[in-house]
Every structure is written in C-alpha cells, then in structure tokens.
Design a protein around this nucleic acid. Structure first.
Lengths: 227, 227, 227, 227
DNA sequence: TATGAATGAGCGTTCATTCAT
DNA sequence: CATGAATGAACGCTCATTCAT
C-alpha cells in the first residue's frame, strides 16, 4: 500500500456532493468497479473461492489496485460486507410502514424480506462466508454493525403498533419475529440446491416461490396475531 | 485415478456384516479415520478451505490415502455428504412418532430438528458448502438423495395423523411444514456469528437457545393446528 | 526519470550558505527527512529489505518524493552511502592528532574507529549491502570515493610521525595498519549475532566491548611499535 | 508440506552408510542439489535477494521441492547455514596442529583461516545475511551452534601449548585471538569492493592478498609471542 | 496395502517504478 | 513543489493431484 492510507476517505467522499476533480472521479470509479466486481465474484465463489485475480479481472483493473484501495483481501471483504448491508438497509427503508395498519405493514415487511433474499443470492452467500469465518470481518466494521441493527428496529416498530391496537400478541419479542421471517426467507435461498435435490421440485420456479411466500406470510400472521 | 476405481466398494462392505480379514479391517480403519477427519476439517473450514493436507494430517494419515480411498477431493466430499445425511437420518429415526398423539409427535420432531442443527454445526457448514457449489456433489450421489428424502416423509406421516384427528389444518403441505422447522433451526446455527454481532446477544448462551426453541415450537403449532 | 534530472542540485545547495527561500527550505527538509529515514531503514533491513514504502512512510512522506529527489532507489542508496561516509569523515576529523606524540595519536585513532563501528551499526550494514552488490553504487559516486580515501591518510600521517621519531616500525604500510584496525572494529559489530551464538557471551555487554577495545589497542601497538 | 515432515531424517540418512533404495537415493540427490544451489544463490544475492525461484531453477528442480524438503525459505537457510559451518569445520579439522611446535601450528591456523575466507566468499555473505537478520536462524539450529563452537577450541589448544612452552603470553584469551584472526580474514573478503574503491588497488590480485596474509601472520605473532 | 517423491498451476501479497495533473 | 493513481513483474507459499515403487 503505497498511498491511500485511509481508503475509507475515498469511500466517504462519495457520500458528500462536493465536485470531484477528474482524478478523484476516476479513482472513485476504479474503487467502485472493484467493489462491485468483488460482490459478484464473492457471490459466485464465496470468500475463499473468490480470488483476487478473478475480482480484479472482472473489474477490468489490476490486482494491485485492490491492495491500493482496500489494503488486502480482508479489507475488501469488509467493504463488501458493508456495502451489502447498506444496500439491504436502503431497500428496507423504502418499505412503507403505516402504524395505523400494522397487519398490512407486517405483510409488506415479510414480503420485502422474503423477496430480498430471493432476489439477492449474493447477500446470502456473503453472509454464509462471513459466518464460516466466525464473524471476524463484521467485528472489525462499525459500519456493518450499525447498518444491520436497523433491520430489527423496523420489526419492533410494527410489532408495537399492532400491540397497541390489540391485534398482535403482547408476549412476542421483535427479535424472535425478525428471526422467524429472516430464517424462512434465508433458508429457501441458501439451501435451494440441496432442497431441490431431494424435494424433487425446482425451488427456482416462480410458482413454487410464490407458494412459499404465501405460506411464510400465513405462518407469521398466525404466530403474531391474537386469535 | 489409478486405484480405487470403485471407491464405494470399501464403504459398502461396511454395511454388510461379513467377517473382515485383518487387512480389510485395518483398511476400513484408515478409511474411517480419514472420513471423520474430513468431516471435522470441512466443518471448520468449508469445502474450499479444508485442504487435503489438513485432512490427511488430522487423520494421521497421508494425502495419498485420500486418493486411494476416495479418488479425489470431490469423491471425499461426496462421502462426507453421504455420511452427514446418514447420521442425521439415523438420529431422526430414533424420534418416537405416535400417530395417536400428533401434537406431541410434532413437538418431538420440532425439538429434534432444532436441536440437531444446534448440536451439529458441521451439518450446517457442509450443507452450505454444497449449496455454494450449486449441489453438484449431491447430484452425483444416489445415496445422499435417498437419505435426505426420508426427513420429509416423517413430517408427512405426522401431519396426516393430525389431519385425520382434525387437530391439524388440511391445507398444509408437509414440505412447507418441514421447511419451516428446518429453516428456523438452520438459520439460528448458520448465521449465529452475524446475528450475534448485531443482536448484541450471544446466541451461544443456553437460555437464549431454549427461548428460541420454545418460540419455534409455539410458532409451528399456531401455524399447524386448526382453530 | 521525468524530474530531478540533476538530483544533486538540492544536495549541493546545502553545502553553500546562501539564504534559502521558504520553498527551497521546505524542499531541503523533505529531502533530508527522506535521507535520514533511508539510513535508518537500510540500517535495519539492508538494501534489498529496505523498501521504498518503508522509507517513505518512515519519513512521513510519499514514495513519489524519493523519485523526485533521488531518481530511483539506486540514487537514494548512493546518497545514503555518501552521507554515511561524510558522517564518518566528519567524526574522524575531530580526532586530535599530535605529530609529537604518535603513540597517543594512534591510540586515539584506534579508540575512535573501534567505537565508531560499535556505535554506528548502520555504517556496517550499509557497507555490507554495498559489498553484496559488488560496489556498484560507490563506483558511481565521486563524492563517496573522495570521502573514504581520507580515512587512510590520517593513518599515514600518524604512522609517518612515529617512524620519524623511531617509535614505529619502518616496514609498515598505512593501508595494512588501517585495515587491521578497521577489520577488528568492523568484525565485532558486523558479526555480533553469529559470534554471540557460539561464544555464548553477549557481545553487547559494555564490559565485553571494553575488553575487546583494550585488546585491539594492545595488538595494534605490539604490531606497530619497534623494539 | 505434504510429506517429509522430518526433513532432517533424509539429511542424517546421508551420514549413515546403509544401502539406499533407488527412490531414497534420488531423493537425496534432489535435496543435495537444492542445497548446493541455495548456497550458490545466497552467496551471490544474499538471503533476501536469493529467491526461491532462482534456487530451484539453479538446482534444475521445482519451487515446490524446496518446501517439500526444507519446509520454507527459512528452513532452507538454516540448512545452508549448517552446511556452510560443517564445511568450514571439516576443512579446519585438516589443519595439522602440533603441540610441540605452537608457533608453526598458529601460523598454519592463521594461514588456513585467512585463506578460507578468501576462497569461500559464500561463507562471508551467508554470515552477513544471518547477521542482518539478527541471528534468528542460527538460534534455531543446534547443529550450527555445535559446529561453530569448535573453531575456538582449536585456538584454545594451540594457545595453551604455546603458553606451556613459554613462547606465548599468558594473559591472552583464545576468544580474542580467534576473533583477531577471523576479523582480519573476514574483513578483507567481506569489504573488498568498498576497499578496492578507495584504496585504488584491486584486492583481488594475488600479490595483494599474499602481502595481507603475511601482514596478518606477523601481526598475530607479534601480539601473541612473549618478549 | 501403503507411501515417498514429484509436479504445475494458482494463491495473496509486495516490489520498484511511471503516469497525469 | 507535491501528490494520488496506476502498473506489471516478482515474491514466498499452498493447492489438488500423479508418478513410481
């Protein structure tokens, strides 16, 4: 690492809206394309299988640039983790929560999560990789922890609204509720190949997925609503 | 592949109960210790990270023996997959199902599955590895497919019994029911590091797990029972 | 080499005493800090092991600056070599030589040299690096050759004074005398780790060094004096 | 490292004289050729500059073999260090020491050492490399320490013989004597490029070396003998 | 049945250096 | 005067695998 000793600076520069010099803009472009390529490659091969060379060539850049911007492979994976969580959060923020209609809100939330995992296999594989490595990257990233904790607070909000209206049970923790939904969305995507193998049914088929989505929603509502 | 053209030969010999010669017994021992070491190593590092050398030295054997008995790394992983499923099946077969008491039977089933995933992290990691590789090993193994399909049939049996007695809903597929339970057991184990990171709570604690177990049982029953 | 086509320019400016502009002064500062850092880093890791990056970051500067001021790594090492010799010469010039007392003068000279090597491990390692590279840098530097030849002339002076007084042997070359003293001072420092390993005695201890200093002085005097 | 977990075994097998199988013989050959190539390459480029690739291709072998027989580069260097010391010891053992003629014996010893360094530049460069790395390899090798300590005991023996006969001073330590001789032999070889540069004389010339050899012998005798 | 020896491709990383402002 | 961005070659090392008994 000859320069770019604080690689996050570049990253954060993207958040602000100051005009960038041509050089800075091109740098941002390189960094971004590496990051995007890394997400794709890790999504396909996992952390171990996603080699520096695969990533740099997918980004049409050079191995050396990864070390320039991210320090090393670990640093790159931390950035990938952060970006992946950030995207999830960004998408979740768009789910319209209406405290006046907790049931509908919960349905929307379930729909969002189940579909998000389904549409973003990279999220699942990246999380699996992180868990395979015992969470050592997320431990290093304040950003990732910050992002991820948001997910639960939305469930908390909806659950509370329903409880106030008397439509949701009082003896439920938002954490369990969140985990139930996440588990069912996650599992379907994460284990689709082994499941397909012995269910004899392709989980990729849209009807199969829709049926599952309906089942999850039904199960969640039966679990949450008061009689 | 110059030797072990039919690597399963030794494996199947173990199934029968013919008396083995001293040589064959020692061979069986080597094969077993390699297989056990492989399960341990893959459980810790995944398929990619679990190198031949790590495995052979964990088995106090030699690289060459792996090729001798399993052909190559893929062959070894197929054997690992089969053994892993076999153990799960073996354990599940011990769950006492009573058609006269479907609710209790279901409870026992849920308890078994949630606990099995919790107690067998290697099962989870090995399945994740297999899914990362798009199920290419399970596709090669008749044995694995055979084993895995059994799991659902038990759910089918219990569900049917409950439906006959009128205590379980009629509009449920055993597949969905199985997946619900599996998902919730699996997710807790599979994602424990990332979950711990942002739940701020150690999922390893036994109370936390017990609470989760109770929640899963409750959710399943609310989903399954009529009225 | 697009810039700094005459890298010595800045260097020589330092020799004169003309008032410098603020810009030139800051430039001089950068150059100096890089040079000092290079000496430290080369002293620790040798020429090969002392990377551009280690040096620039030790100097709290940038890789690019090294190329700006010294052309390339070789140019930097030549400058390091020159500075190292210059310092040695500067220190040696302070040794008080009295032609009327050649024995005392010789003692002072021996004391100086043995101590200089002992106190300046960087000198030893830098010379070793240069010799490992077959003297290719010193060959390029008139300055270094100029400096280094001075060392012998002092010995020549003292030896001559002693010979005139009849206290020193006539059949000695100043070169041999110089080499004898240098060798014994050098070796102690240069090989201290391997020597310590099998002498079982830490050469770093001050008593051990003092004893060696006395021995060297004694050996030199016995070699040089008549009678 | 897939096999050869105890690389020294192979090494020691060479000491014994048991008949070797064709395989073992070829293995010994490979190991030896790698070791010899390593000595040559390290002698030319030092430890840092002597790359694995340079060595393996000089040995007409493969990078991988170095790891097979020596574990890693450090292990190889330790073996090089041991072999280098061993050779020195072997050569020194041939110097004929006669307790009845201590002066002649000392002369022979001086002659041997000064010439050995002169004829074996690899010894000097390898020791320099080891000292650059603060003796960390020798610290790992019992063998090297064992070898190296022998050198002094010979000096001890000769010195004692001379003292008994009253021809050598009583107040001399064998350590100082050894270091004096070693220093003067070592320095001439180690620093020949920088010395040549400013002595203006090629130290490689045989006359120059002979003169130095004579000077060393004279200096040592003047230092050691009584009267 | 078992094993030591050998292989070539690929891994993550660091190197000295140049380009473009 | 100073710097961030980019480069390609080489580094030490590990990978799964085959050869020859």
């Amino acid at each position: 690492m000859t320069q770019a000793k604080n690689p996050k600076a570049t990253s954060k520069a993207a958040v602000g809206n100051k005009p960038l010099s041509a050089r800075a803009r091109s740098a941002q472009l390189t960094r971004d394309s590496v990051l995007k390529a890394a997400i794709k490659v890790f999504a396909k091969y996992g952390l171990n299988g996603g080699s520096i060379e695969k990533i740099s060539s997918a980004a049409k850049s050079h191995d050396r640039m990864i070390y320039y911007y991210f320090g090393n492979k670990e640093g790159l994976f931390v950035a990938v983790l952060e970006e992946t969580y950030r995207r999830f959060n960004e998408a979740e923020a768009k789910v319209e929560i209406d405290p006046k209609d907790p049931v509908l809100s919960l349905k929307k939330l379930v729909e969002f999560i189940v579909n998000y995992y389904h549409d973003h296999p990279e999220f699942v594989i990246i999380l699996n990789s992180e868990n395979l490595h015992r969470g050592k990257h997320i431990a290093k990233s304040e950003l990732a922890q910050e992002y991820s904790s948001k997910a639960i607070s939305v469930f908390s909000e909806v659950l509370l609204a329903g409880q106030k209206k008397g439509v949701f049970r009082d003896d439920l923790s938002p954490r369990d509720l969140y985990m139930m939904v996440a588990a069912m969305g996650y599992f379907y995507q994460s284990n689709r190949y082994t499941l397909s193998a012995f269910l004899g049914e392709k989980l990729e088929k849209t009807e199969t997925f829709s049926a599952w989505e309906q089942f999850v929603m039904d199960a969640v509502l039966r679990t949450v609503t008061t009689k």
